[in-house]
Design a protein around this nucleic acid. Structure first.
Lengths: 230, 230, 230, 230
DNA sequence: AATGAATGAGCGTTCATTCAT
DNA sequence: TATGAATGAACGCTCATTCAT
């Protein structure tokens, strides 16, 4: 299930009313080239000229489809993040019916995904961009909200003693653990070879948390914050 | 211990052979301005012009101290990352002697730190930069290696059934969990208000992991990876 | 008789051999849009894109009717200048039979016209264009030649002591006085409220000139130019 | 006194505090090149690249001195219009003491000036620009306000039966007559050879107006506007 | 030590134009 | 007829860098 570097990323590209088929194809080429530049060379190299060169077009034509660079960025992020969401939905559809197994599978699947070059390189760019670009921030936060909502449902199915709010907090914690792993054990990272052990730790630790957590555990800490308790 | 936004970040600025004190002060001004621009406006605005304006100098003078922008970036990252390391060392020096408490405190301290604007904004930039800049990558990985070495020592002190290697893996997992939290519950992030509960989860979950983990748990998973087991 | 800002300018659009009525309508729409852009936003905004937007068409279609922007400019100027000429002819047709009254009326009529937004904004653009565009220059000069010919006829009718050549010179002087007023007392100009007094001065001064001028007055000055006499 | 085409236009260039001598010279070169492009090729060719080529510099250096093109335009117009004002002041200083002669001389001088390529080409550009650029409009209107104030003083000296307001109206009329002549008898215009006769007409007609005008003449027309009277 | 000056390359964007559909 | 698509050139502007002062 690990995404190969050569695999073209799956993008859900917004349909355009009345556009020629040719134009839609061109848009996809541009977005794919843009994604490639962003992933392979980083946001510093993410220029219209570089993207145009990547897809063998002229700068003016990119501006024809995306009057402002901002438009291209937004559409690219929308497409790629929707692609990720679609991939997750599909994975869930094929997964087991057993709640624990579903949750475990989801964690494993995502940890596999972050080892792809695409994911390892793309998401840190998004995190950085989001801090100074409101629209990117909204897109990224919405994406994670959807992802964590999926996790929260699984958490609830495993442990129904938790409130919905608590499930979402646990889901965020699970999500944070996985995302954080990207920067240490993602594609070409020094700890990438240790990913099997890390995955083991993550699954064991997070599954135990989900299964044993009680509402009181959260409430207790809220009353006496860790840094005072410590 | 939470770092205030107004607190100037602590930087350990590299001494220059034969440099006048005056020059050192100027360098500090430049680096501080550079850090400020990077944190407040992101890498897009991280230009010599913008930095020069921030510290009331002319662009030419920045080039006098840092012949190439690359030099400035490296020295800045070195200084700020060393500053973070110093801060951690200091915190450990003042911490309890009890191993569990030391570890718990370290986790709590770091989770507090990621709520500062500085940390929330700076590190995603570093993660993104590191993916396409070898020198930045080395600096960042070295920084995390030191951080995780500190954690690994604490882990070993709490659970001496684990090998050094296993302790390092656990330390990386702890580190990943904390870093990952940055993008969801860092400064001005939507989940920032939930940080107390997240901290509770992190401490409870990670401490339990450290205390109960056995070498077999890691070996078992290595033989049968999660994605097959799932 | 003052041209209202809301009045659509009258254009005499050149018939195209073998053109369908539909095409003629489209051409008129384009020319009207072009004129509107030129008058409202100036020659800087006078681009095919802007004009196309103004008449709800696509740029490509403008190029279909006017293969080169130059063609559009020429046809536009021809149409609008012919429209002005037609308007003047019509005004003369309705005017009194008394020579003096005809001349006075013509001056007043033109001074009224330069207060329209159309005239105030259009003609300075033409004067500027004509200085660096031979075709525009020819169109504009021809237009003024026709206008001054009309004035010259009136001048002769009032004062038959002057030669035709002298009448044309006087007509040019009258025309220059009126055109020059455009930039000071035209639409939205600071002196526009003073237009009644200016009109009074113009009529009194110019009519007196026409009535009293003798050929010797011109010859005398030719022999001893003002700048030496002064 | 006629300004030769080869004569460099006189510009009153704003002093810059703390600038190197070199920089001031460069600014003058830029402004002179800019003026040359505007006069010789019109506002369509008035681009930073064209100007840079004209003075043998690179575009970036123009931007160094004038961060925005707007700044260059404003400074250029200020310098050249102030230059014209200075020239007029100087001319007045050397003129006769006799009021009539002073006025006549001023008219003749200005009519001579509009035959220069610079004036013939520059001013129509300004008139056109002013209609869609507020700052240009202000500069141009201020320039003419100063010019007409000078004329108004002469008018008053010749005919003290007029109020100040009336003198200003007459001055505007004189100014309009002269400016309007630019487009017909300016440099390279078809009627340029007739300039002696036109100058004769202008002086005879305008001087007679100034000498014989009575306040009643203006008041009468104000009560019964020409277009109704006609 | 610091600045003013200048460069060359590149940025996002807009332009008139061409052409297949 | 009219549009979508694409181009190549140019636009104003910003960039890191160099260098004389």
């Amino acid at each position: 299930m690990e995404q190969d570097q050569d695999d073209l990323p799956v993008m859900r590209i917004r349909a355009r009313p009345g556009a020629y088929a040719c134009g839609t194809e061109t848009i996809e080429q541009i977005l794919r080239a843009a994604l490639n530049v962003l992933v392979e060379e980083g946001s510093n190299a993410f220029t219209l000229r570089r993207i145009a060169a990547e897809c063998g077009m002229k700068v003016g034509n990119l501006s024809y489809y995306f009057p402002h660079k901002e438009n291209l960025v937004e559409e690219l992020l929308e497409a790629i993040l929707n692609g990720y969401s679609d991939m997750a939905d599909e994975e869930l559809r094929d997964a087991s019916d057993d709640p624990e197994e579903r949750l475990m599978c989801g964690i494993a699947f995502t940890l596999d995904d972050i080892r792809s070059k695409l994911t390892t390189n793309l998401f840190p760019e998004l995190w950085a961009l989001a801090n100074h670009n409101e629209k990117v921030d909204r897109l990224v936060q919405d994406f994670y909200a959807r992802a964590q909502e999926r996790i929260a449902l699984s958490v609830r199915a495993v442990n129904d003693t938790l409130t919905e709010e608590e499930c979402r907090t646990v889901a965020l914690f699970i999500s944070a653990t996985i995302e954080g792993t990207t920067i240490f054990a993602g594609h070409a990272k020094p700890w990438e070879p240790k990913m099997p052990e890390i995955k083991a730790l993550a699954i064991q630790s997070l599954m135990h948390l989900v299964k044993t957590l009680r509402s009181d555990d959260l409430r207790a800490f809220r009353r006496s914050p860790a840094r005072l308790a410590a």
